[in-house]
């Protein structure tokens, strides 16, 4: 049986009208932005299922854009996010689509930088403001962003997992969950930790020579 705390039933503090279609959408956008990390000039949202059908009435569009601008689900500027994005010169597009297998409240966000390079994230809003990231630019993953999360891609070599976990433990970071998958020679690791993963630790891990992608996502607005 899942354990509940008082703030699971009284909270979150959020911008309405819907925890799944608005608060979850903002959280999804914000976590996607953290994963992308760099500046972007265009974001295209491919909305799936209930997101596609009701996004205007639920303000899902505004919440998603607010999220990729870095706003929390309780930020009162969410209402004005489309105007704010326009002022910042970020091009925003929405398309209704069918992503196939995904949860009814899902979105694929395609980010584009100045050079025209694209990077996409797929995620779902799974209820009560919680979310699930399922795809990072072609790599299948599954994490909620409730815990500090480390995402790594590297050439699969012996001892990689142990080197990474040694760095974490020497920095007193406890690993909560770890999933490693492999496609060809590329391994993807999604690791959830019990405490925040700071820049120093990230740097130390990225010094491992065959890691070519590393990103830490720290939790937002969760009490």
């Amino acid at each position: 049986m899942k354990e509940y705390g008082v703030f699971d039933v009284l909270g979150p503090i959020m911008i309405g009208p819907s925890s799944s279609h608005t608060a979850g959408a903002a959280r999804l956008g914000k976590i996607a932005k953290q994963i992308v990390g760099e500046d972007f000039v265009k974001a295209t949202f491919l909305l799936h299922g209930s997101f596609a059908k009701t996004y205007k009435g639920h303000g899902t569009d505004k919440a998603l854009v607010a999220g990729i601008l870095g706003m929390d689900p309780s930020d009162e500027r969410i209402k004005y996010s489309l105007e704010i994005a326009e002022k910042k010169g970020i091009v925003i597009q929405f398309h209704e689509t069918d992503l196939g297998y995904e949860h009814p409240n899902s979105v694929k966000i395609i980010f584009e930088n100045k050079e025209g390079d694209t990077f996409y994230i797929i995620g779902s809003s799974i209820g009560g403001g919680s979310i699930l990231i399922t795809d990072i630019d072609g790599t299948k993953v599954e994490f909620t962003g409730n815990l500090p999360t480390l995402i790594l891609k590297y050439d699969d070599r012996k001892g990689s997992v142990s080197r990474i976990s040694t760095i974490l433990s020497s920095n007193s970071i406890n690993i909560a969950t770890m999933k490693v998958s492999r496609e060809g020679k590329t391994a993807t690791m999604v690791l959830e930790a019990d405490s925040k993963i700071n820049e120093t630790v990230l740097k130390e891990i990225s010094n491992i020579e065959h890691i070519f992608y590393i990103k830490a996502v720290n939790p937002i607005d969760k009490r």
Partner: peptide, 17 residues
């Protein structure tokens, strides 16, 4: 307030807030 994208506390949900 909830339906106009204002700030509320889900209690236990936004719809019943």
């Amino acid at each position: 307030v909830n339906a106009s994208m204002g700030k509320i506390v889900a209690a236990p949900t936004a719809g019943a807030s």
